[in-house]
């Protein structure tokens, strides 16, 4: 009988209506207005790659050892080096093809020093495929941050 009465007075529907009505309070809004509000990005986020320099000397940390290029088979990383007079490897070029990257972090894992890093920058869209092939200077300086104004 109770069920019948509940059904008669549309209690099931009214409960739903109450819920949606209560959600109109401004504090319930979950939207993040993206270009105006920057989302907080986690520390470990795997975004645009960066080739780190030593903070004080400014020299590259990369020892041109090559495991990052081997960590992933798509040949998206190409490391170029030459031998110095004392047979040490010196990094010359470093290209990173973002169009083939799936941001899995395997290259980062493979790096024995702290040179290659996937950073928190997530705005890596470019207008051309060529724009996604980043060279050494791009990787070291990082992409220019996009500024949104209104």
């Amino acid at each position: 009988m109770r069920e019948r009465l509940r059904e008669l007075f549309l209690v099931d529907l009214l409960r739903g209506l109450r819920l949606t009505f209560s959600y109109q309070r401004p504090s319930a809004t979950y939207t993040e207005q993206y270009p105006l509000e920057r989302p907080p990005v986690a520390e470990r986020y795997r975004g645009a790659p960066r080739l780190n320099n030593h903070p004080s000397t400014g020299e590259t940390l990369c020892i041109a050892c090559n495991p990052c290029a081997l960590a992933y088979t798509e040949n998206l990383i190409v490391v170029g080096w030459e031998r110095t007079s004392d047979r040490k490897k010196m990094l010359t070029t470093f290209t990173y093809d973002l169009s083939r990257c799936m941001f899995c972090g395997l290259c980062e894992d493979a790096c024995p020093v702290d040179a290659l890093e996937l950073t928190q920058d997530f705005e890596v869209a470019r207008y051309s495929r060529e724009g996604l092939i980043w060279d050494r200077s791009m990787l070291e300086e990082g992409p220019e941050p996009t500024r949104y104004t209104r």
């Binding site: 990005v41 986690a42 520390e43 470990r44 986020y45 795997r46 799936m102 941001f103 899995c104 972090g105 894992d109 996937l118």
Partner: peptide, 20 residues
């Protein structure tokens, strides 16, 4: 995202344990 750095295609575990 806070744990492994990605939201959807996480690659959260490695063979033999955890990366992080």
């Amino acid at each position: 995202e806070s744990y492994c750095g990605a939201r959807l295609t996480t690659h959260a575990f490695r063979i033999g344990g955890l990366q992080y």
